[in-house]
Amino acid sequence: MNKKPLILVVNDDGITAPGIRTLIAVMNQIGDVVVVAPDSPQSGMGHAVTINETLYCNKVKIDDGPQQEYKSTGTPADCVKLAVSEILDRKPDLCVSGINHGSNSSINVIYSGTMSAAVEAGVEGIPAIGFSLLDYSWNANFEPLKKYIKKIALNVLENSLPDGVVLNVNFPNNATFEGVKVCRQARANWVEEFDRRTNPQGRVYYWLTGKFVNMDKGEDTDEWALANNYISIVPVQFDLTAHYFIPKLNNWDL
C-alpha cells in the first residue's frame, strides 16, 4: 500500500488564522499533515529569521482533525527550518503556505512571509506552493478556493517542480472564477509615503502608507489575471542572479 504524502503546512498570519485552518482541512484530504506556524501574525516579514532572540516551538491542538500542530515564536521561514530540522522525521513531500489574507501578487512576493516560507521550503528541496486570497478580512470566504487548492496541490505531488522553483498562487476575491492562468510576475511596485505624527509625549513616529502602482500592461501577468477574475499561478525562482547581464558586466573595466 502506498504511503500517504507528508505535507507541511505553514503561514504568516498565525496558526489560528482562518486561512491556514482552511488549508489544513484541504490537505487532510490528501496526506498526513504537520502544521508549524507562527503563534502571532508575521505579515510582511519577508525571509527574516530569528538569530538574536530565543526561539520557542510547542505542540498544540487548535481544532479537530488528524493533523499534528506546532506553534512557534519565530518567523514563517523559522517555522520551515524548525519543521525540517527538529520536528519531522523525513523530508515532506510537499509544503503549502497560506492561505494568506491578502494579495501576494507582483512585487508583494518580495515582502511576503507566506511566500518566504514557501521559498525556504524550496531551498530545502521540498516542492512548495504559496496560496493567497485578495481579501485582507479576517472573515474572508475561503470556501470557493478549496477545490482549486486541492487540484493544484495534487498536480505538484504528481508532477513535482524543478529544483529552485516554487509556485505563487493568488485568488481574486470572488465566489466564482473565470479559470486558472499561468502567468509571469507583473512589473509593479508600491509608491510609499510615511504619515508623520507626534505622540502625547512629543515623540515623532511614522505610519507607512502608500499606493500600489502597476506599470505593466501585459496580458500575461498575474495582475492582469487577477483583475480579470482568473486565479494566477506564477512559477517563482529564488536564484536572483541576472544571468543575462553577466556577459555585459564582464566587459566592464573592473
Rank of each mutant, 00 (worst) to 15 (best):
D12L: 02
A118F: 11
K248I: 13
Q185K: 14
L82T: 14
I87L: 08
N139M: 09
Q29M: 07
D239A: 10
V204R: 07
K150I: 06
L208G: 06
Q237L: 00
L82V: 11
D220M: 06
E143K: 12
V49G: 01
Y70Q: 02
S43N: 12
E193K: 05
P200E: 09
V34G: 03
M45F: 13
E219N: 15
G19A: 15
V119L: 14
K4T: 04
V49D: 00
N139S: 15
H101T: 09
D135C: 12
G122L: 07
K181R: 15
N199G: 10
T50E: 06
F238H: 15
N159M: 09
D220H: 05
M45I: 04
H47N: 15
D64L: 10
L154C: 13
L145E: 04
D135F: 03
P18I: 01
T209Q: 13
K4V: 03
S112T: 06
D195G: 00
N214A: 07
A186L: 09
N104Q: 12
A140T: 02
A153G: 11
V60N: 04
A77L: 02
I24M: 09
R21G: 01
V9R: 03
V182Y: 13
E158T: 13
G31E: 03
E178V: 07
A77K: 12
A242F: 12
I107P: 00
A188L: 01
I126L: 06
A225H: 11
L145T: 14
F238M: 05
V180Y: 01
K248E: 13
T198Q: 14
E86T: 10
Y136R: 06
N189A: 13
K217A: 09
D135K: 03
A175K: 14
A188Q: 12
T50V: 12
T241V: 14
T221G: 08
A186Q: 10
D39W: 03
M215R: 10
K71D: 13
Y205W: 15
S85N: 15
P92G: 03
T50F: 10
V34D: 02
E120I: 01
W138P: 01
E158F: 02
N228Q: 11
N11I: 00
D78S: 06
V169L: 12
I99A: 08
L240D: 12
E53Q: 14
F171S: 11
G122V: 05
